[in-house]
Design a protein around this nucleic acid. Sequence first.
DNA 1: TCCGAGGATTGATCTGGATCAAAGCATTCA
DNA 2: TGAATGCTTTGATCCAGATCAATCCTCGGA
Lengths: 256, 256
Amino acid sequence: MSTRAALDTEAYEVVAPSQRTSRRSCKRENDEACRECAVRSVSVCDALEPDDLATLNLLKEKLCFNPKETLFYQDDSALSVYNVTSGSVRLYKLLPDGRRQIVGFMMPGDFIGLSLSERNGYSADAIDTVHACRFNRADFVSFVVAKPNLLRKLHEAATHELTLAQDHMVLLGRRSADEKMASFLVTMRDRLIRLGSSAVTIPLPMTRQDLADYLGLTLETVSRVISRLGRERVLLVVPNGIRILNSARLEELGAS
Amino acid sequence: MSTRAALDTEAYEVVAPSQRTSRRSCKRENDEACRECAVRSVSVCDALEPDDLATLNLLKEKLCFNPKETLFYQDDSALSVYNVTSGSVRLYKLLPDGRRQIVGFMMPGDFIGLSLSERNGYSADAIDTVHACRFNRADFVSFVVAKPNLLRKLHEAATHELTLAQDHMVLLGRRSADEKMASFLVTMRDRLIRLGSSAVTIPLPMTRQDLADYLGLTLETVSRVISRLGRERVLLVVPNGIRILNSARLEELGAS
DNA sequence: TCCGAGGATTGATCTGGATCAAAGCATTCA
DNA sequence: TGAATGCTTTGATCCAGATCAATCCTCGGA
């Protein structure tokens, strides 16, 4: 059963998925080949030799999603898998009464659909404008079966995500609001550094509600914590992001 | 860096790992071949043909751990991977100040060390008496590389664990104490049913503190919730376990 | 330039679960 | 048989974060 109906009536407004009209502003850009892909080195595709990369290139469909547009819904049949090339995506699960837990933010180079399973375990929406490669799941699975290198890479990616999930459990189950925020910012900074950003300023395209649903807090608490850390000169709130002023203090708070 | 030092001085008393003396009461039982293994059908080994199973059999070492004995510590170099054949294991992460989050309970058929990575992402102790097959990690990795079937199975197991981890995040981040307990019991019951148990009574070999550290609560809250559900005739506390009396009510509370 | 909508912030108050404290209950060992 | 040890339960109180309720930006469109 899809959670689409629930979504439409709940607090989380989204844009309907898979409708050509809603993606009109973003044209297809299939001219860009996998071999020239900017995020290849940080994504699972890096496991492939030039020949196989060329084959993969034929399977891909480059798409663009507008802010708030939904890629797919939890429990729907999983027709596709995705590789994010730019922008940020929120992955989340909803309880029947509308409570939401964001289980991850996906960024350039991240692969969505590692489980290769029949149904989506969560919903996914674009936070800002998102570019992604889409693959038909069945085609992709067939391709993977013949490419042990790629399967190994997918397995590595899956176990890496599992490690992140376990860290997230510690955060949700055992940390205070301040620690949650600090830990999130430190993790985000390190992730951006790995993506090649200078990361003095951390861009936060998501709303306070998104942060709250990621950290297991309310949006008011997130706002208060950020304000307090601002007052303490640990960070500085800038438009669409946060600048870290006192990295040592933040790391101390977020220490794992 | 190992968290062993922290453990020794903290509230969670454990038995030192890898000392032959502490395992003296459990003799080696390498006579039991993989092909006759009771949990094979529910474990990753099921991916192997008879020939390969015989090879794996030579790699395995059947071990027994006493209650509270530690299999390995978080952050230590990962020398082995394990397949649990009987008993229960807690996997947990510790914060520097001793706060603990249990990230999973492993039961017969479960594989520990799916990530095949260099270091342990968590610590693991036996809860009750545990029997497990141990494999040298390097040997196991070499074996896997030549067996795509097994790699596929490991990947499936990893993504299944990821799904469980995501459900656990929802539980930790967005559910009340009652819902956490109910959801845990329902999940445990279904897991036992899949293992072939009747599961009218759910054995709980772990302590209230373990449950608390799994659910992101305190042991007092766990005790109070169980007492309340007992008073409401939803369940009955029995020695070393819980009997579900009102399954419908429990499922309603634990609904996802 | 003003207006409206969608965030974000801040304040006042409430409460679920934590914390502190004291029994209670089995085992095991002397 | 008693007493020590290691859970578990129950009670009293406290507090971090939730909830309820105004404002307060900020930015895009008229």
